[in-house]
Write a protein that binds this DNA or RNA. Structure first.
Length: 768
DNA sequence: CTAACCGCTGTTTTT
DNA sequence: CAGCGGTTAG
């Protein structure tokens, strides 16, 4: 994005045409808006207006679910512009998702009546990337640095770890990656990690490896995601001239989803917001009750602490909910009230609708029945004229979609799984991207390694290893090592031919890039390197589809002015705008559902161990439980009219059946807003009678984490019966059968009409 | 350097 | 159960 500058006001601007247009527009404001209440401020409630009209000084907007948060944020943005307080380029607006950024941009445009361009509006990462390209040299990068994906990060770390000879069985690199990321989330460069922050990972080598990893990233002229924030924050901390420059630019700062900010994001914001003279015009919108990303480094404390960080901050609470029925709101409020350490907010119905339906809680036998009931209910709703896109099935984990997909497929209901594998994550796309990355940035060894033997060129691991040694000696990137080896005649036979050809392809593409542009160059590179031919020769069923995807990639490439612009888009945006127009039921995780709403929401799998997830509880104790509860709250508040919670008495986890208890969250919803159906009564009574789970269950467990026994346990609702071989038993699904063997509590039963099956003993009734 | 096999390990994922 | 990574055998 090229920025113009405006001599008159001494600041960087967006596209200067935009500047002219906006300033003209602002100049007309008094005539255009004669009434004291401009149109865009009408029909807002008093709190919302306060959140918009309090433009000066720090402001925290606590916006509960469905209280018009996005509307407030966008109107505030527009209000600042329309009242002439700032030019578009003087407002910094940060979101977490590209979707939120896009939405905000569109809605601001709608209020302004023209496209909003040249704004500092985007995700934390995209804005940092944009800044970092300008100041890359301060951290030893050049402005054309590449951004690595998670896959490359792990591969790079693996390489870096090698000299330490660490037993990756005991100390998996994924875990170390996690530690490094947490450090980055907290704004800790290797130099800032104190001994107190250090990890005992691999006998205390973690920090040294982190340092080496960072050095390697710089050498490759690359960044991982965390670096975008970390480097930029470091620059703002150390380079007062750079910081001053941004202080001059940004008059107003808007932050969305503040409860999800991590420490670096907080530090970055604080640096930008706190200026030597003048107030901090920073407005943060968030909801502590919807903080569900602590496992990714988010610190709820940031929002809880806001008034201390920014003394004199105003706090506005948005509590009028315009989304859900009174019943759903009351149920959700009752549930979330079980959390401690909240800022405290009570959602009130904002519209005078009827009360609506109670939250339905349905107990079922197993996951098949759960899917059958949900499928049936959706069919029913469709029969009553409701469109499928108004229903969603929200679950704790991605793999839970499986039975629902099967069922919906069987009964012929179209569905869409949101958050599955994304376009840019497909292997053929990543291969192509690797080619393009090398073209744009020959020092990107990771990209080069991915494609050096793809298609197969007879360059194996051994050869690559040799190149690495070579590259280290030179020192330089792998591509340079290859060129050198060819020149020196160190390569022979097939591998020489192959690498010669590959390097020539890059050379030609580079030339074409200059003369005919990046699209032609990309196409030529993929052709000359033999990559496209590889798929054409592939006789498998997927091959044609993959070629289609590559064609799509090239088409998308054409939408960008430069190769680098495109690569940045891919790295940061990752999301391909999916067709939302089709009438389909949405299946997604609760995390994926944040910010969305549906008339009807199905919430399956509300069982102890599943939701709240046993793993969370084991690892994070009470903190994690509260986060799980917030997740449940997010789930319930997605529903406009109907929320249906389901729980199964037994569920197949991996290989075997496990009986499970209803989630404690079900208990926690006040009973007056709930309607129980099916076996719920039964199971809950059993649960209450069974000593334990609710009172002193695994919540406070001191069991060491990571131990295999910590996986979801079998909750013995009934005492385990002892069954003799030869006994006749009855099973609710398979009918009568004869016990022919046993394996612990698992019985081998020969059923009359189902053959031999293995069944847990407490699932059968003994007949004789 | 590839192909077959064993054994382990299973959340959530805005960027 | 199933997918992946790592090892081993050809």
């Amino acid at each position: 994005m090229s920025l113009g500058s405006c001599a008159a006001c001494q600041i960087d601007l967006g596209i200067s045409v935009g500047h002219d247009r906006i300033s003209l527009y602002i100049g007309r404001v008094p005539q255009d808006l004669p009434s004291p209440t401009p149109e865009y401020l009408s029909r807002l409630n008093p709190e919302q207006r306060r959140a918009i009209e309090t433009t000066e000084g720090p402001l925290l907007i606590l916006a509960g679910a469905g209280t018009g948060k996005t509307r407030v944020l966008t109107t505030r943005f527009a209000h600042i512009l329309l009242t002439g307080r700032a030019y578009p380029s003087q407002i910094l607006a940060v979101t977490f998702t590209n979707k939120a950024a896009r939405e905000m941009r569109e809605r601001v445009s709608a209020i302004l009546g023209e496209p909003a361009e040249g704004l500092w509006l985007g995700t934390f990462h995209s804005i940092c990337a944009r800044m970092l390209r300008r100041h890359a040299e301060y951290v030893g990068l050049t402005s054309s640095f590449n951004i690595l994906d998670t896959d490359d990060q792990i591969r790079l770390l693996k390489q870096v770890m090698e000299p330490w000879k660490i037993d990756t069985k005991r100390w998996p690199q994924n875990q170390l990656m996690g530690i490094i990321q947490r450090w980055k989330d907290r704004g800790l460069t290797p130099d800032r990690v104190t001994s107190a922050e250090d990890s005992d990972f691999a006998n205390g080598h973690a920090l040294a490896i982190y340092r080496a990893y960072q050095e390697r990233l710089i050498a490759l002229n690359t960044c991982d995601f965390g670096d975008l924030m970390l480097h930029m924050t470091e620059i703002l901390r150390n380079q007062s001239n750079v910081l001053a420059q941004y202080h001059r630019i940004f008059r107003y700062i808007l932050v969305d989803e503040y409860q999800d900010t991590n420490t670096v994001q907080y530090l970055w914001l604080r640096l930008l917001a706190k200026r030597e003279h003048g107030p901090s015009n920073i407005a943060c919108v968030g909801d502590d009750d919807q903080s569900i990303y602590s496992w990714r480094g988010a610190e709820v404390e940031n929002i809880l602490r806001f008034e201390k960080d920014f003394p004199g901050a105003e706090v506005v609470r948005l509590e009028r909910n315009y989304r859900s029925t009174a019943q759903i709101l009351a149920a959700a409020a009752g549930l979330i009230a079980h959390n401690e350490g909240r800022l405290g907010k009570t959602l009130r119905p904002g519209r005078d609708d009827a009360q609506g339906e109670k939250v339905q809680i349905i107990g079922v036998r197993d996951s098949d029945e759960e899917a059958r009931i949900v499928g049936g209910a959706i069919e029913h709703l469709r029969g009553d004229g409701h469109s499928l896109s108004e229903s969603a099935i929200l679950m704790r984990a991605g793999f839970q979609t499986r039975p629902f997909e099967e069922r919906l497929m069987m009964i012929g209901i179209p569905y869409r799984v949101v958050g599955g594998l994304r376009f840019y994550e497909r292997s053929e796309i990543r291969d192509c991207l690797a080619y393009l990355r090398v073209l744009s940035q020959p020092a990107d060894d990771l990209a080069f390694e991915r494609i050096i033997n793809l298609p197969k060129r007879g360059v194996g691991a051994v050869a690559v290893q040799k190149l690495h040694t070579q590259a280290r000696a030179l020192p330089g990137p792998l591509t340079a090592a290859v060129v050198w080896q060819i020149q020196e005649g160190l390569l022979k036979g097939k591998s020489k031919e192959a690498l010669d050809g590959l390097m020539a392809a890059f050379q030609r593409a580079k030339a074409t890039l200059e003369t005919e542009g990046h699209v032609v160059a990309a196409e030529q590179l993929l052709e000359d390197s033999g990559y496209l031919q590889m798929w054409r020769d592939d006789r498998s069923v997927e091959a044609p589809g993959r070629l289609d995807n590559i064609r799509e990639l090239l088409r998308a490439l054409g939408e960008f002015g430069t190769l680098q612009g495109f690569l940045e888009h891919v790295a940061l945006v990752m999301d391909t705008e999916s067709e939302t127009s089709d009438d389909k039921v949405s299946l997604m995780t609760l995390h994926g559902a944040k910010g969305l709403e549906f008339d009807t929401v199905f919430l399956p799998g509300w069982e102890e161990g599943v939701f709240p997830s046993q793993r969370s509880l084991d690892e994070g104790g009470n903190r994690a439980l509260e986060e799980e509860r917030r997740l449940a709250y997010v789930g319930l508040t997605r529903a406009r009219r109907r929320a249906i919670v389901l729980h199964a008495a037994s569920r197949r986890i991996y290989a075997n059946w496990q009986s499970s208890m209803p989630s404690r969250f079900i208990e926690e919803i006040p009973s007056e807003y709930v309607q129980l159906t099916g076996q719920a009564f039964e199971t809950r009574r059993q649960a209450a009678a069974a000593p334990s789970m609710f009172a002193s269950g695994p919540l406070t467990s001191t069991r060491p984490s990571g131990f295999r026994a910590s996986r979801p346990k079998i909750h013995d609702v009934k005492p385990e019966p002892t069954v003799a071989i030869g006994a006749t038993v009855f099973h609710h699904r398979f009918g009568e059968g004869t016990v022919i063997g046993a394996d612990g509590s698992q019985l081998h039963i020969n059923f009359e009409n189902g053959g031999v099956k293995r069944v847990m003993a407490n699932f059968v009734e003994i007949r004789s």
